[in-house]
Structures are given as structure tokens and as C-alpha cells.
Write a protein that binds this DNA or RNA. Structure first.
Length: 566
RNA sequence: CGGGAUGUAGCGCAGCUUGGUAGCGCACCUCGCUUGGGACGAGGGGGUCGCAGGUUCAAAUCCUGUCAUCCCGACCA
């Protein structure tokens, strides 16, 4: 491709509305253009990268035995009603009507469709197991799209669905997919960590997320991990306290005045005690019903874990007036005592177990109880957010914390979709059985952005070779110089014949412009044809290391082959 | 949906306080000159100042409403 013909316009400055470096660079280097919030055009450079990632995904998926298909992007409400997700999915599911007034939606995922597709075709156990995948646009009307392609509303996803006759066979396929995913990301030049995670709205029991570990806020997930191999998303990490027992050392239980101590910090300061000697009550509305979660004062509720413990679909913190209405209590002074247990559900976090002679709300404004102790026969659950320094549930060493960008995930769904949708096969005994399913996603467009987050410098993007839009950028310093142009064109032709993807920067601009663009766009190799041709040499520069070697044109071709064709 | 900020040419911005011909840099077009890290000169094209009302002789500027975008908290590939 000649640079003068490439449909691209690089910018001198970063766009104002971008925060994440991948977003800034994708716009500035001319890879994407925003149409609306969270909705982008992939310009030719980006499309090439996406194609490369997609092809790697295809090769590895095909090698694993999966088959590619393509499902509809616009879907009727009916199948979503069948799986009961028409109600549950919420506003992320963008709904619309067709001309006949039928309710439709834009696909955020394809469990419903694939289930209905397979149930009409794979009617016998003999046709199982199956693993089907597609690479397609998805639409999720995100609450807050941000960071460019890292969280768009429209994005490209590879989604795969597997169908089995037993949990054991699902688990076998799950392992196959785990290995396939590791291979895919490795080939894309990305190291990933598979972490245990909550399975969320997609549902199911076991799931792992593939995280690219980063140290910036664009890593929207907190990941806890241990050298022993344990790793988990914070919404799923098991909390093992590094300090199990706390004692407030109050000799007897009594009610004390604690004016204006609505927060744990204020209360701890007022009573001159540690926060971990206070039993904190956090009130929620879960599926329209009031809930109090009791937790040690230095710990926080992890709402996903709480939601799972309650088996709830939706939770939100209780408003102040609801505290008064439902609990007959006051915000900041709530206690689990005296609540009507037929109306209000009370949960105790594990962290409350080792507390003695602690401080507790008195259900009276500006009053707490000191020297309280827990009643007998309380059940404890794990609903807290892990704190740094807490212990690994496997080996009990302190956990480490980092941030991650989720580029893929794998789920064991079981019969979550097949049962309600009545999607069955006939087994060896002639019995109808629901499929046991798994599903496996990769954010293709997000992977592109994650690669930039991981590989860039102050000059621009540094593409891993496997997903670079072009491999080599040939820069004749002066396009009016016939000898330079001849050597450059010759190199261009020869490299193209070797199926090396090459750009010839034939623009009339000065060299500096071309060098800046080469660095910004991030071609892995740049060959400069300039003053050194008097010695019969060109300059061979590697973007990643900045290393420059002077070589003859033929040697430069050999060097390209060595780097690119292995 | 709550809290904060911003909307003026493709991009980055000034002008608004104190109303009076819509500007600058980059990018784009033409000519010249230049050619090793975003040159220079001359000329040129492009904007209903987010949108809708209102105040006024007159609104980018003041008032009201509205929409959009971005950042911080509840989601997920």
C-alpha cells in the first residue's frame, strides 16, 4: 500500500475527549473515528488489526474442533422471553419495534439464538458434543461507555457455545477452551491471567476471565492473585482475614451517646477505638426487599458477592428515608437487633465471627451500644471485598492486588438456558435431556485496545508483529530523489512478493513527518532510504527497541524475512 | 440515574466578564521554495458559534429550557 493512497489522517494532537491512552492513540493515529457515544468506525488500519486478531481466533478455535457460524444481530423478543432474560437483562438490552409492532432487540450476546438453533438440529446424543462460534458485532447499551474501544456500546466479539451430554464432558471442553484462549492471546502478543470470576447475568456456576494485567485505571477489574496460582476477580475472591479476632474491650453492654457519628471513621475517632471493633450494618434493597448486611467496620461489602448470597437479581443501597420506614432505625445507627426478621433479611459476613465486646448501632439516633456480643447460632457468609494483605484461600500467604482488562471469559452454563427454553436431545435410552452448555467470549475490538494499553511509548503505538496493520514501512527521505525512489520501490516490490505487508511512504512531505507518523501508527519495522544510499545502504529500524542497523537492500529483505516469517 | 466539567471549521483552542463585521494554530487546496524527526513564504476554501425559545435596534456573548460529550460512583467482551 502506498501511504499517499491509504485512507488515514493522523492528528498532531491528542483528541480532547479521550482519557485512556489506547483511545487517544487510536484516534490520533487514524485507526478509529467516533460516530456516537461508544460507537466507532474502524478505519482501514484498525480493520486490518481486527482481521488479524479474528484470524488468530479462527485458527485456534478451528484447531480446537469448534465450527464457525454467523447468527442474526437483530432478534425477536420471543426467544428472550423464553429464557426469561427479556425482563432480567435490563436497559443494556437495546429494544425496538419492527413495522408490525413486534418487539425486537439488538443482540448483546447469543445464548438464546444458539440454543434455539442447536435444538432443532442436534436432536440426538450422537451429534454431541458441539462447539459453535461466531465473530460478530454486539450491542450493549452500557451505562457508561468509556475508554474508547475498551468499553464501547457496539463492539466486536467472538462468542462460542458448546453443547454436551454430561457435566464431565463440559468440563473437558472447558479445559480445551482455557488452553485455546491462552494460545490465542499469546499469539496476539498478550500475556493474560485466567482469574476466577463471578458469572453475572450470563449465568452458570464456574467461570474464568482472561485479564491483561495493567497498572492504570483503564483496568476496570481488581484482581487478587497469589504465587501459588490462585487468582480471582475482586467480585469473586474469597476473603480470608489476616486478623480474625478483634476485641473492643468494653466490660459490659450499654447504650452510649455518639452524636454525629454517621461514618465508621467518625465513630471510631469519637470512641477512640479501631474500626475493626465496630460491627457495621449496611442496608440494601434487594429485588425490592430490605436487607441488612452486617460486617466488621474495617471491611467493605462486595455487592456482587452479596447479591449471590441473596440469590438476588438487583440490589441497591437503601435510601435514608427507607431506613426509617423499613428498619425503624436511623442511617448510621442501624443494628440487626430488633428488626422484624419476617420482613428484613439479615446476613452476617465472616468478618463478624471473631468480634468481641464490640460497638453496634442502637437503632436510635446518635446512640450506639458498646460491649455488644453476637447472639448464638448465627450463620456467617462471605460477602466482603478482599482487602490487600488478606490471605490466599489456597496457601494462606498474603494476596497481591493488581488491575486487569478483561479480554475474554469462559463459563460453564449447565442447563441455565436449555432448561427454560426446553432445548433437548434424545439420549441413548430414548429420554429427552436438556443440553449441558458452556460459553466462551473474546472481546476482539477490546483486545486491540488492550494491546495498545500494553504496548506504546511517548511516540505512539508499538504493535506486536502478529497483529500489526502492516509489517514494514519504507520511507524514502526525499521522493524527488530518483535513486532513493528507485531503491525504495524495488524494496517495496520485493517485500510484497514475499507476502510481507508493506507501506511505501511516497508522500512529498519532509522526512520528519513520515518518521513521526511511522512511530505513531506503530509499524514494527521501518526502512529508511536516504543519505546512506551513497554507501549502498538503507537503515533498518525496529520500532520496539529503537535499534537501527545499516544494511544493504538485500540484507534488509533478509532481515525482514528473519523477523517476520518465523 | 446521582456528583463535576465542557459544547465556536476535520482536530486543538481564543473570543463571552463589559452584546456591535467570527478569529488563531494544525489539517486541507494552489504556487514557489525546501527535503534525515511534525520547514518556510504567498494566496485560498471551509463554521446556521450544540439545539430551541426569550431579552435587545443588535446575541457566540445575557436569561430560560433542552440535547450531546467527557470525568468520578452501580455493569461487562
Amino acid at each position: 500500500m502506498k501511504m499517499s493512497k491509504l485512507f488515514v489522517q493522523t492528528l498532531r494532537e491528542y483528541p480532547n475527549d479521550a482519557e485512556a491512552i489506547s483511545h487517544k492513540l487510536l484516534v490520533r493515529a487514524g485507526f478509529i473515528k467516533k460516530l456516537a457515544n461508544g460507537i466507532y468506525t474502524y478505519l482501514p488500519l484498525a480493520q486490518r488489526v481486527l482481521t488479524k486478531i479474528s484470524n488468530i481466533v479462527r485458527e485456534e478455535m478451528d484447531a480446537s474442533g469448534a465450527q464457525e457460524l454467523l447468527m442474526p444481530f437483530v432478534q425477536p423478543a420471543e426467544i428472550w422471553q423464553k429464557s426469561q432474560r427479556w425482563q432480567k437483562y435490563g436497559k443494556e438490552l437495546l429494544r425496538c419495534e419492527d413495522r408490525h409492532g413486534n418487539q425486537m432487540c439488538l443482540a448483546p450476546t447469543h445464548e438464546e439464538v444458539i440454543t434455539s438453533v442447536v435444538s432443532g438440529i442436534a436432536t440426538s446424543y450422537k451429534q454431541l458434543p458441539l462447539n459453535l462460534y461466531q465473530i460478530q458485532t454486539k450491542f450493549r447499551d452500557e451505562i457508561r461507555p468509556r475508554f474508547g474501544l475498551l468499553r464501547g456500546r457496539e463492539f466486536i466479539m467472538k462468542d462460542a457455545y458448546s453443547f454436551h451430554t454430561s457435566q464431565k464432558d463440559l468440563e473437558r471442553e472447558y479445559e480445551v477452551m482455557a488452553q485455546t484462549y491462552t494460545n490465542i492471546f499469546k499469539r496476539c502478543g498478550l500475556e493474560t491471567k485466567a482469574v476466577q470470576s463471578d458469572s453475572g447475568a450470563i449465568g452458570g456456576a464456574v467461570s474464568h476471565e482472561y485479564m491483561v494485567l495493567v497498572d492504570t485505571s483503564v483496568g476496570e477489574n481488581d484482581v487478587f492473585y497469589c504465587d501459588c496460582g490462585y487468582s480471582a476477580n475482586s467480585n469473586h475472591a474469597i476473603s480470608i482475614l489476616n486478623k480474625e479476632e478483634t476485641n473492643g474491650n468494653f466490660k459490659e453492654e450499654k447504650i452510649v451517646d455518639t452524636p454525629n457519628t454517621k461514618t465508621i471513621e467518625e465513630l471510631a475517632k469519637f470512641l477512640n477505638i479501631e474500626p475493626d471493633c465496630i460491627l457495621k450494618a449496611v442496608a440494601y434493597i434487594a429485588d425490592s426487599k430490605p436487607v441488612i448486611a452486617m460486617i466488621r467496620g474495617d471491611k467493605e461489602i462486595e455487592e456482587t458477592k452479596l447479591m449471590n448470597a441473596l440469590n438476588a437479581l438487583e440490589i441497591r443501597p437503601m435510601e435514608n428515608d427507607e431506613v426509617i420506614e423499613y428498619l425503624n432505625s436511623y442511617p448510621g445507627f442501624i443494628s440487626h437487633r430488633d428488626v422484624d426478621s419476617s420482613k428484613v433479611r439479615v446476613l452476617f459476613d465472616n468478618s463478624a465471627k471473631g468480634m468481641k465486646n464490640f460497638v453496634l448501632g442502637a437503632n436510635i439516633k446518635d446512640k450506639h451500644i458498646t460491649g455488644a456480643n453476637l447472639e448464638k447460632d448465627i450463620e456467617f457468609v462471605d460477602i466482603s471485598l478482599v482487602k490487600e494483605g488478606e490471605l490466599c484461600p489456597i496457601c494462606h500467604k498474603p494476596l497481591k492486588k493488581t488491575k486487569g482488562i478483561e479480554v475474554g471469559n469462559i463459563f460453564q452454563l449447565g442447563t441455565k438456558y436449555s432448561s427454560p427454553m426446553n432445548a433437548c436431545y434424545t439420549d441413548e435410552q430414548g429420554q429427552l435431556k436438556p443440553y449441558i452448555m458452556g460459553c466462551y467470549g473474546i472481546g476482539v475490538s477490546r483486545t486491540m485496545a488492550a494491546a495498545i494499553e500494553k504496548y506504546h511509548d511517548e511516540h505512539g503505538i508499538i504493535w506486536p508483529i502478529a497483529i500489526a496493520p502492516y509489517h514494514v514501512d519504507i520511507v524514502p527521505v526525499n521522493c524527488d530523489d530518483e535513486e532513493q525512489m528507485k531503491i525504495a520501490s524495488d524494496l517495496y516490490d520485493k517485500l510484497q512478493k514475499l507476502n510481507i505487508e508493506v507501506i511505501l511512504d511516497d508522500r512529498k512531505d519532509r522526512a520528519g513527518v513520515k518518521f513521526k507518523d511511522a512511530d505513531l501508527i506503530g509499524f514494527p519495522i521501518r526502512i529508511t532510504v536516504g543519505k546512506t544510499i551513497s554507501e549502498g545502504l538503507v537503515e533498518f529500524k525496529i520500532r520496539k527497541t529503537g535499534e537501527v542497523i545499516k544494511l544493504s537492500p538485500d540484507e534488509a529483505i533478509e532481515k525482514c524475512k528473519e523477523i517476520l516469517l518465523n
